[in-house]
Nucleic acid binder design. Structure first.
Lengths: 352, 352
DNA sequence: ATTAGCACTCGGATATATTGAGTGCTAATA
DNA sequence: TATTAGCACTCAATATATCCGAGTGCTAAT
C-alpha cells in the first residue's frame, strides 16, 4: 500500500523548520523520529497529532519516509538535500580558524609533498571523525624554482626539483655515460636558469624544443636536457589517499552486513572514489553528494563532502570526507571548505 | 563441570599428526572439528570413537577445547602453538622466490624511503590477505654516501643525504645568514668528504667535535657544520605503517562485535603494535605471537607473525602480519620471513 | 587397543506470544 | 479552518517455547 505522492510545492515556514529539526534529530540519534517523543523532547507548542499531520505531508512530498509502517520518520536523500542546502544558504564562508584547529606546524616543516598530503588527509579524518580522501594533484602546473642534479652512482643521477612554493620532488634518472659532480653542478645551474619560472607542463611541451635548437657555449647541454626531459617525462600520477577508515567502523549502521560490503568496495576499489573526486574537480567550492546522488550502485548509504583545491587559479586536486548518509554535515561542510583553502594556500603561496 | 586436566606428556606420532590435522582443518573451515565428519572427510582408518578418545586426551592436555559441551573441538592457543612450532621445524628457510611473487620493480625505482616502506607494507598485506605492519628504522646506522645542500630561499636550505644504498633523505634547515649557491656547493663537497662513509650515529656522536677542532682553509666550515648538525640532530622517528585493514573486515570472526572493538583498538592506538614490534626487534628471525601470547588485554583473538630486519648486521626495524588467531600460518610465516630478507637486502646492499 | 551402540547435551533454527512506540483516522474544539 | 484528543491498529524488537542434529562420554563387545 504505497503512500500517495503529491506534487512538490514550496514548504512553508513551519514545515521547513520542522523538517530541518527532524533531519538534525535523526543525524544526532540515528533513530527514526516519532511524533510524540519529538514534541516532548523539544517542548514544542504543537501537539503530536499536528506533528503527525505535518510529517504526513512531508512524507507525501518525499522528504521523509518510514522504515516500516509503525515507526517514526527518517529523512530521505531529498530530505537530507533540503537540510544541507539550507545549511549552505546560511553558512558563513569566512574561515573560522579558531574553531577548526588544524595543527599546521607539522605541515610547515615538511617539504616532501607526499608526506604533506598524508598529513592533511589524516588531519581531516581526525577532525571530521569520518574517513578522509584526497586526490593529489598532477604537478603539471607547478612552477619550477630550481633544479639540482646529484650523482648517485655511475649510471644514476638524482633529479631534484624545488618548486616555487618550497616543495621538493625527487626522481632517479638512469644515464648512459658517466659524469662528474662538477659537470652535474654546471648542468644544474644551466637547467635552473633556463627552466626556472616555467611550469612543468610548459617545460615538457614547449621549452625543450626551443632549448635544443639554441646554441650554448661551454656546457654539454644535450646531456643536461636529456636528464631533465627524462625526469619530467611522465610526472607522478595523481594518487588517492584514504585515511580514517577506523572511524567508519565506529558507526553502528556502517558495520551492518550490507553496508560493510559497501565499505569494503570503497576501500578496495579506489577507482570508485577516484572517479567521484575527479568530478569534484570540475567545480569550485564545496560539493556534497548525498546517498543515491553518488551514482555508483556499489556504494550505498554513504555521503560525500568534497572540494577542489588549486595551484594559482587552476583547479588541480580534490579533497573530501566520506561517511554515512547520516553525516554531521553542519560540522563537515565548513571543515572541508577550510581544508581545501589551506591546501590551496600551501600549494600556491610563493616562498620568499 | 570442568574437565580434568592431566599433566603434560609428549604426544605420540598419531596424536601429533591428528592434532596438526585438526588445527589445519579448523584454520581452513573456521568451524569446530567433530569426530565423525572429520574421519569421514579424510577417510581415516580409525573410527569416530577412536578419534573421540584421542580428542579427549588432547583436550585434557589443553591442546584443544570445546566451545560448548556438545560441539566439536577447536584449538587452544597451546594447540596453535604446537602446530606453528611443527611448521617451523620442517620449514625450509631458503627463499622461494618463484612462489612468492613480490613485485619489486616499483621498489627498485623508488628512492624515497617512506614510499618504499609504504609499498612493502602494502605488498605484504596484499600477499598475506591480512593486515601488514611495519616499524620503520631509525636511520642512526645508515651509512652516508653524499650530502648536498640546496638553497630554498634566504632563510632556508634543503639538506639532502644520499645513503650508500641509494636512498635519499631530505630535510629543511633554517639558517640565520644568507649564503650563495656556490658557497653551498662548496659546503656540500666539504661535508661529503668529511662525513661520507660514516653512519649518522657516528656523525652525531663523534665526528662533529673532531671537525670543529680542525683547521680548514678556504671553507666557512662552521656554517656547513651548523647546517649538517641541525639536519641530523634528531632524525626521523621510527614510524608505524599499517596496511590492509580491509582484509581483516572480510574475516567473519573479526567483525563480530567484541572482536571489532579489539580491531579498532589496534588501529587507533598504534602504540600497542609499536610496543609489540619493538620486542620483535630483540630477536633475529621469524617470531610468532598466538592469541594470549600477545600480552595486551585490549587485543583478543589475534595473532602476529613478525620478523626483524637489518642494516648491515644491526637489527633496525621489524615487519609483520596481524590477523585472527585462526591464521594461515603455513602461508604467512614463510612470507614474512622472505619479506624481512628483502627489506634487509634493500637497506644493506651497496649501490655500485 | 579399537570399535559399535546408546543415552545425553545443547547451540541454532523456527515458531509463537508480548510489548510499546509509533501510526492514521475521526470527532470535538478553539 | 487549523488544531487537538481519543482510539483502534501495526509491527519491530524482545522474550519464550519447541525441535533438530551434530556432537559428546561411557560401556560392553571385538
Amino acid at each position: 500500500m504505497a503512500r500517495e505522492i503529491i506534487k512538490d510545492r514550496p514548504l512553508d515556514e513551519r514545515e521547513s523548520s520542522i523538517l530541518q529539526a527532524v533531519v538534525y534529530e535523526h543525524i544526532s540519534t540515528g533513530k527514526p523520529v516519532g511524533s510524540r517523543s519529538f514534541v516532548q523532547k523539544y517542548s514544542l507548542s504543537i501537539s503530536p497529532a499536528t506533528m503527525r499531520n505535518i510529517m504526513f505531508d512531508l512524507e507525501r512530498m518525499e522528504y521523509v519516509k518510514q522504515p516500516h509502517t509503525s515507526a517514526g520518520r527518517i529523512p530521505t536523500d531529498k530530505g537530507y538535500r533540503f537540510y544541507v542546502n539550507s545549511l549552505l544558504d546560511t553558512y558563513d564562508h569566512s574561515m573560522k580558524d579558531h574553531e577548526i584547529q588544524v595543527r599546521e606546524e607539522a605541515i610547515k616543516r615538511e617539504v616532501q609533498l607526499d608526506k604533506i598530503f598524508s598529513l592533511i588527509t589524516r588531519m581531516l579524518s581526525t577532525e571530521s571523525r569520518y574517513a578522509a580522501i584526497m586526490l593529489t594533484p598532477r604537478f603539471d602546473y607547478t612552477v619550477v624554482k630550481r633544479i639540482v642534479l646529484v650523482p648517485m652512482d655511475q649510471s644514476e643521477v638524482l633529479f631534484i626539483l624545488v618548486t616555487r612554493t618550497g616543495m621538493v620532488l625527487t626522481r632517479k634518472v638512469l644515464i648512459s655515460s658517466t659524469v662528474t659532480q662538477d659537470e652535474l653542478y654546471d648542468y644544474s645551474k644551466y637547467l635552473t636558469g633556463e627552466l626556472g619560472g616555467y611550469s612543468i607542463n610548459d617545460i615538457r611541451e614547449r621549452i625543450f624544443d626551443r632549448l635544443r635548437s639554441e646554441k650554448v657555449q661551454g656546457v654539454n647541454k644535450e646531456m643536461a636536457l636529456d636528464i631533465a626531459e627524462l625526469a619530467v617525462a611522465e610526472y607522478e600520477e595523481p594518487h588517492l589517499h584514504i585515511e580514517g577508515i577506523e572511524n567508519l567502523l565506529k558507526i553502528p549502521e556502517m558495520v551492518e552486513e550490507e553496508r560493510l560490503q559497501s565499505l569494503l568496495k570503497i576501500i578496495e576499489e579506489k577507482n570508485i572514489l577516484r572517479r567521484i573526486l575527479e568530478r569534484a574537480l570540475e567545480n569550485d567550492g564545496v560539493w556534497t553528494l548525498i546517498g543515491e546522488e553518488i551514482e555508483d550502485e556499489r556504494v550505498t548509504g554513504c555521503s560525500m563532502v568534497s572540494t577542489s583545491y588549486k595551484i594559482g587559479n587552476r583547479l588541480v586536486g580534490a579533497i573530501g570526507v566520506i561517511g554515512p548518509t547520516r553525516m554531521d554535515y553542519e560540522k563537515v561542510v565548513p571543515l572541508v571548505d577550510y581544508t581545501g583553502r589551506v591546501v590551496t594556500e600551501l600549494l600556491t603561496k610563493v616562498s620568499t
